[in-house]
Amino acid sequence: MTSTDCLAANEWICGEYVRTRKEELLDATAQHVGIALSAVLIGLLVAFPLALAARRWGQGPVLGLTTVLYTVPSLAMFALLLPVFGVSAAVVVTGLVLYSLTVLVRNILAGLDAVPRDVREAAQGMGYGRRQLLLGVELPLILPALLAGVRITTVSAISLTTVGAIVGYGGLGNLIYSGMESFFKAEVLTASAICVLLAVVSDVLLLGLQRVLTPWVRHRAGAESAR
């Protein structure tokens, strides 16, 4: 029994498929990671000023708007952005950025709210300006909440990127789409499995980053449970 049989028999799991289409799989994975990653990074760049603005001028409108955006289904979101950007990766990236704002803005605000007043007053008493207070005191303190938000955002972005296949920029979603149209089982299953793997790996990497950047969270939790 040769390994090419699984291609001819259209089996779900097929090593020969992976061997012969390695290039295609790598390209799709690269596009997938590129789209998801740029969405999370742009999302962070937009979420910060938005959260600071919300803190200064009232949280209601910003939280309301991001919740409404989150309610719009992904296929509709990409379709609505189509006339704005035309058929391009920008449609998918922008859609994912808009989704990321819900969780990121909420978590940044929750983190800022949780900064103890004593800490803020102590910093002000030591002569910290508004900018120094934000970067030197508040930012490190909101890191745990922020990173938790980044983890959720990243995993969702990787999963939602597949829907970008509707405009041809869905990374692994493109393979799922073409496999669906030609009823190519191995292509659909392999692309789906890589997609889940990407999400899990990025989650674990971000968890590691969380542990390295905020070691005090674990120490404190340990101390509390030891008490």
């Binding site: 969702s156 999963s159 829907v163 979603g173 659909v188 789906s192 889940v196 989650d203």
Partner: peptide, 18 residues
Amino acid sequence: SNAGRAVPTFAVLVLLTM
């Protein structure tokens, strides 16, 4: 819930339909 987020809905729909 975390696991549910990692699984692409599009992939599951296509897999189940096939």
